[in-house]
Amino acid sequence: MEEIKKIAKQLLSENKIQMVIGFEKGTANKVRPAFFKNADDVEKLIYNDTCIHNLALYLKKDICHHIANVGIIANPNVVRSIIQLASENQVKEEKITIIGISYEGKCVGILDFKAAEEFAKTQPKGLKPEDRAFIEKIQAMPLEERFNYWVETFSTCVKCYACRASCPMCYCGKCNVETNNPQWIPVASHKYGNMEWHIMRAMHLAGRCINCGECTRACPVDIPLNMLSYMLTDFVMDEFHTEAGLSTTYAPALSSYTNVDKENFIK
């Protein structure tokens, strides 16, 4: 932590960056995202293994718009989000300074995009065993049971869209759910509207989700909606051999193709 602080302080005092996005103490023993604008503020910065929020989200919000260069305390999920955002032309290298942290919590110093790509490749990827078990449990259900499982699971969704607001990859200025002429997704949080919302969300993140879990963490009613995205990440990996968040020149699975994509299901 001292090393992170040292780097942040130095960058700020040399005016190489004008703000650092990191963490500070939150309610009780929680941590919360925080924004440090000068070296003295940085004293309040903390980093520990509960700092799991995906801070890359803030790079796309107003608070970063007028800042020449933003420093960001970046665990592997944040690094991968930044790489993914870069591949989608959403962030510029000259406006971001990544202070990398490995999954073990070790500071790896400042990373440019090239180094960030290398770093991301060395960090654990893919599904955690418990997530895989969850997905397999669902896959093992008979068709109807699977359908009912999701209908029931999504029936508690209040359509607050916290999952969307907290996902770094959900940056559209006007989301499909807000398109009302025609109304693609029902506004109401009834079972049908919820199902359609989640189908759409999962599809829009297919091949772009970096498995950070922020969406589910943000959900006020704890819906495991990230499992749809995780399952598709896995599928995209198996099928197209690509993975989001590892290369700034990545072509998202759904906006690219090859001539030999499988078509055994097409008559």
Partner: peptide
């Protein structure tokens, strides 16, 4: 290339439907 893009989308969509219990 419209149909190439579509083909991929269908692959992913079919998988998602299957996972969500849509027939």
């Amino acid at each position: 290339s419209g149909n190439f893009h579509a083909r991929r989308r269908w692959m992913v969509f079919r998988r998602l439907c299957d996972f969500m219990g849509i027939d």
